[in-house]
Nucleic acid binder design. Structure first.
Lengths: 217, 217
DNA sequence: TAAATATTCCAACGATTGATAGATTGAAAT
DNA sequence: ATTTCAATCTATCAATCGTTGGAATATTTA
């Protein structure tokens, strides 16, 4: 059976097509953005700070690996993840990275002012507190992303509007802010602003994708 | 905040270090082998049909991504996965690949003679049947791999010894054979042999890694 | 101490990839 | 029908990767 080798090579090659998608930083960023809901090429390019052309090229890779679907709506072409398990895989990849790579751990620690992990470990108690109204959970992503999906009991206050809408928030309870995930800095900024204004604010590292992936394990 | 961009780039770059490991067919094969237990460089090279040098180079990538650990035992250096979640990630990557890539589905169907999936869907009933002795589950991998970990109720009959040890197996019950996973052809060969010899044999696509990963979801 | 074995390091080759610029498609608006 | 706009395709260059061969390292064995 000499061709057993050929068959195996073919199989692993196919799987590597998926792995390849997750091997480029910019593609990872695009995947994380797509975890927040469908987006146009231009929107993705802006968010990821790369040219539309390059974005299109990366999205082509995603399309060829069958990980995204496209749909034309008027002038624009919207991309979305083909499957929820793509988001789950993204979460598992970055979780493993955070687990194994010291450099990444250090970089993440430098971003957020420490003790915000007490919550990530403890989803149930956060939900209980949110349900009872003991804490206020705010989603600081753009409102379209909130509408697409959000954590239970979360209120939408996009980071751009936060300063003007501070009066909506109570000062006697903790404000928990989250955004797209651990690599999105919007929640960090929100917490910084809130603290400066005298609120007791907590940064939740997880986004909707991380939350969902954690729920089902 | 211009350097928000720099921070993000750094973070995604780190995660891509993990993704990159899963982007090469040969590295994937090495990971699957390491899922079966610790192995020397030479053993890995033989199993993957590549030179020791190339194996060493690929293992270097794995080491730099902190996904494997090494230990010297006498003359040899043994590699093992640094963490169970590396095996889980491998399972999730190849599962997503099988889910999305038609080419891969077709290739897998061509290997096995169809209706062996009835079991994969149905782990509990297989276990019940195995517990009651209604079916005989055999692990056709090398015995070291069996010793490292195996499915409950499984008996070790390495593929090389199967022909001589046929008398150990009953003809009045179904024999379920499994090996390293869906890309390993040992169980397929075992089933082919058993059927030719008049046994009723069933191929279980999953290996220990797949089984474990499925259990905890 | 020398020889044998297992593995890694180093240098080099062609193949592939990420990124950029220019030309092209294809739907929508005038 | 023509213009406009979003997105893709093509060509290109430098950088990186997979692979191979030769030299080097470290450990065991004689």
């Amino acid at each position: 059976m000499k061709d057993a080798r050929k068959i195996k090579d073919l199989l692993y090659e196919q799987v590597a097509r998926i792995g390849k998608v997750f091997s480029s930083p910019k593609r990872l960023e695009l995947i994380e953005l797509l975890c927040q809901g469908e987006k146009t090429v231009e929107a993705l390019a802006n968010e990821a700070s790369i040219s539309v052309k390059l974005t299109s090229a990366h999205l082509r890779e995603l399309r060829m690996a069958q990980l995204v679907e496209t749909e034309r709506q008027g002038k624009n072409i919207y991309y979305r993840l083909a499957n929820k398990s793509v988001a789950d895989l993204w979460v598992q990849v970055h979780t493993l990275a955070e687990d194994r790579l010291v450099d990444l751990q250090l970089a993440l620690q430098r971003i957020a002012d420490q003790p915000d992990d007490l919550i990530a470990n403890d989803r149930d108690s956060l939900m209980k507190a949110a349900r009872k109204g003991e804490v206020v959970v705010i989603d600081v992503r753009p409102s379209e992303e909130y509408l697409n999906a959000h954590l239970p009991f979360a209120r939408s206050i996009p980071i751009d509007e936060l300063r003007q809408r501070l009066s909506e928030l109570p000062k006697d309870r903790a404000i928990v802010a989250y955004c797209r995930g651990p690599y999105c800095l919007m929640a960090v900024d929100a917490v910084t602003l809130l603290k400066k204004e005298g609120y007791s604010a907590i940064h939740l590292r997880e986004g909707v994708a991380e939350w969902d992936a954690a729920q089902k394990i």
